[in-house]
Design a protein around this nucleic acid. Structure first.
Lengths: 150, 150
DNA sequence: CCATTGTCGTTCAATATTGAACTATATGGA
DNA sequence: TCCATATAGTTCAATATTGAACGACAATGG
């Protein structure tokens, strides 16, 4: 493959990824109840997927690649909704510990239930094996981009 | 593949895509000169890639899947920078025609030159054929998501 | 040839995000 | 031990986006 063609195709790949990311974000925002943001849902989901009991805001900010300020904002909303608790860390007076509440767990499960149908429809239309085949490439791209981020 | 596993993998694929989109967006924003936003660069690039002479703001908004209000904002910036001209459409008194200026063309070329090295490094690290292989899947996902957007 | 309905572009408040500044606390050498 | 540097979390102005409302004009079907 010529260098020029490789560049063109790679640009298109990144462009498609950007568009898909945008469309998926919008679809997710519409699927969720209006009081729960995509960012908020991500945090709730994080606790369940990774089966974590408590996480600091700083660790959450790094996990989601957002600034600490953005995480403060998201956590304040989740706390107002009663989906998390935020308490001082007894082992580090600078830090806090975020925990999922029962209500938060329920909100996460309901969120997943709202998202599942759309996901299933997409799998139906495209094929589960296609997703499985694409995953390693996407992981590699993510890792390379992540490493390049100085 | 079990339904549950298919769901898990598909979620992970969408999650990786979202993260890559985010990382690429940040990298692009850093590569561009500060006065040129990612959205603005996208508009400039649109004219060159598709070799279009004039486009209406409404068509641009649809092409980039943003609201007309967002496009107004982006175009106002580009016009202030002297990268585009915005003139009334003689054939439709509601509409306007956006055109790329010489300076806009130059800014686009310089933008591409700033982005190319990072892109080439990624191709080097991952392999041009991997990008080519992934493209059809990504196009299909984008089309399905686009069609599902009511 | 109107009346209805649709499209074009703008404006505005609301939302989510960043980067930078700040305070408080921790940590690791000299 | 103390100092320098690093990290935790918050706050704030600035930016980019959405959705909704609006006024102007276009298109279409009776």
């Amino acid at each position: 493959m010529k260098q020029e063609e490789a560049l063109r195709i790679s640009f298109q790949v990144m462009s498609e990824i950007a568009i898909i990311g945008h469309l998926a974000d919008t679809a997710l925002a519409n699927a969720l109840p209006p009081e729960l943001s995509v960012a908020g849902f991500g945090v709730l989901n994080h606790f369940v997927r990774l089966n974590v009991e408590g996480e600091s805001p700083a660790r959450l900010a790094r996990a989601f690649q957002v600034t600490k300020g953005a995480m403060t904002y998201t956590l304040q909303q989740l706390e107002e909704l009663g989906y998390i608790t935020v308490q001082p860390d007894p082992a580090d007076a600078r830090a806090k510990i975020v925990r999922l509440t029962k209500r938060g767990r329920k909100a996460r499960d309901e969120g997943v239930a709202r998202v599942d149908p759309g996901m299933k429809a997409m799998i139906q239309a495209i094929g589960a094996d296609e997703f499985a085949k694409a995953l390693p490439f996407l992981i590699k791209v993510r890792q390379v981009l992540d490493a390049a981020r100085d």
